Simulated assay, not measured.
Amino acid sequence: MRQAIIFRGEDGFWVAECPSLPGCISQGETREEVVQNIREAIQLYIETLEEDGLDVPDELFETFVIAV
Rank of each mutant, 00 (worst) to 15 (best):
S26T: 06
I42W: 01
E62K: 14
E33N: 08
C24G: 03
E59C: 00
L54E: 15
C24L: 06
P19E: 06
V56Y: 14
D52N: 15
M1T: 09
L49G: 12
M1F: 12
E10I: 00
I42K: 04
Q3E: 05
E33I: 01
Y45Q: 08
L60F: 03
P22V: 02
E62Q: 15
V56E: 12
G28Q: 08
E29W: 07
Q3A: 02
G28T: 03
E40L: 15
I25A: 02
V35F: 01
R31E: 14
E51K: 05
P22K: 09
E29M: 09
F64G: 06
P22C: 07
Y45E: 03
E62F: 15
I38M: 06
D55H: 05
L54S: 13
V34E: 14
T63E: 02
F61R: 12
P57I: 04
A67N: 09
Q43Y: 11
G53V: 06
V56W: 12
C18Y: 01
F64N: 03
V34F: 15
G12C: 03
M1L: 12
E50D: 08
G53Q: 11
E62N: 14
L49K: 14
L54Q: 14
R31G: 11
S26H: 00
C24W: 03
T63V: 11
L60V: 12
L54N: 13
I25E: 01
M1R: 09
V15Q: 05
E10Q: 00
E62W: 14
N37L: 04
A67M: 11
R8V: 02
L44S: 09
D58H: 12
E51C: 09
T30Q: 06
L60S: 08
I66Y: 12
Q3R: 06
R39D: 07
I46W: 10
E17T: 03
E47V: 11
G53D: 00
D55P: 01
V35E: 04
E10W: 10
F64C: 10
F61Q: 12
I6R: 02
I46Q: 01
E32Q: 11
W14A: 00
F13G: 08
E51W: 01
S20L: 07
D58R: 13
E29I: 05
D55A: 11
R8F: 00
I42G: 00
E17L: 02
Y45N: 00
I66D: 07
F61A: 15
P19R: 05
T63W: 02
F13H: 00
V34P: 12
R8C: 10
D52S: 13
E51N: 08
I42Y: 07
L60G: 06
L54G: 14
D55Y: 10
A41N: 07
G12H: 06
P22A: 00
